[in-house]
Design a protein around this nucleic acid. Structure first.
Length: 266
DNA sequence: AATCCACACAACCGCCTTGTT
DNA sequence: CAACAAGGCGGTTGTGTGGAT
């Protein structure tokens, strides 16, 4: 049985740990190019890599695989993560199925470093209903606003659009906004998302599934009452998207607004 | 220039599920 | 049916890097 051989291999060979070297990466890429993915323990044994099968799998899936997308998450991707996390919680691999090219590890890291940071600043648990409410009522609508702003800016100054950044749709044609527009008038119902559906915001080639907005979330989206973040704290849409939603002042404003108003923090 | 600190992300660990013998 | 190993997943840790002091 090959699995027993795999276990023996782990005992016999002193396995390497820590960061992968260029040579190891090259070895793994070439081996997979020749033999394909899968059978990771067999791969680890036969490729000459002094790594566990698990380690090889992780390195390939999270880093070396050609369709892995590098770089900052777009506003649309951030929105989708928030939306899907609100439904499924920490089901990272499931969420990743809806963000082509993004790995569960990357999404998990985004959540921990960006989203949980916001929760800490609000002094709430990121898994609490309070924080989920904040995300739904404020964060997600703000992202929608920013997506529209970015699209408007791109439409007004097409020459300024970074050619490495895919163009965003114009505000009136933004798929998320369209979805919002078209579903506000009719009762929405949940349907299980279909993992085979690929969201492609950049060319708007696919429809967003109706599960994106529930009656609750539509209601929440209509409750965005905060003033826009001050212009001086947000240098640009990109900076804003990368640095988090609000400054500390604005976060305090959110808290106060709800403490005095007997809102969700009350 | 040196040190400290926060952040981002790659990598590891342990548990669970699934498939095979 | 039980035992075992592989693969997958989520949680956690380690480390490199850049900014602040």
């Amino acid at each position: 049985m090959s699995s027993k051989k795999g276990a023996k291999y782990c005992e016999d060979v002193e396995l390497r740990r820590g960061p992968w070297t260029l040579e190891e990466d090259t070895l793994l890429i070439h081996y997979i190019a020749r033999h394909g993915e899968g059978r990771w323990n067999h791969l680890a044994r036969c490729s000459g890599l002094k790594r566990t099968g698990k380690s090889c799998r992780l390195r390939w899936l999270n880093y070396l695989k050609p369709d892995v997308k590098r770089g900052n998450l777009s506003l649309e991707e951030q929105f989708l993560i928030l939306e899907l996390h609100s439904k499924w919680g920490n089901r990272w691999s499931r969420i990743a199925q809806y963000l082509p090219g993004r790995t569960d590890n990357e999404i998990k890291n985004y959540w921990r470093t960006r989203v949980q940071k916001q929760a800490r600043q609000l002094n709430v648990d990121s898994n609490s209903s309070v924080f989920r409410d904040v995300v739904r009522r404020y964060w997600m609508p703000r992202l929608l606003e920013k997506m529209s702003s970015a699209a408007a800016a791109a439409a007004a100054h097409p020459s300024l659009v970074n050619p490495n950044h895919p163009a965003l749709p114009t505000p009136s044609h933004h798929p998320l906004q369209q979805q919002l527009d078209t579903t506000t008038s009719s009762a929405s119902s949940f349907s299980q998302p279909n993992p085979s559906t690929t969201y492609n915001y950049h060319n708007c080639s696919t429809e967003l599934p109706e599960f994106m907005f529930t009656d609750d979330s539509l209601d929440a989206l209509g409750l965005a009452t905060l003033p826009a973040p001050s212009s001086d704290c947000i240098a640009s849409v990109d900076d804003w998207a990368m640095s988090g939603l609000w400054s500390m002042d604005e976060l305090c404003q959110v808290r106060k607004q709800h403490e005095y108003g007997g809102g969700i923090f009350g």
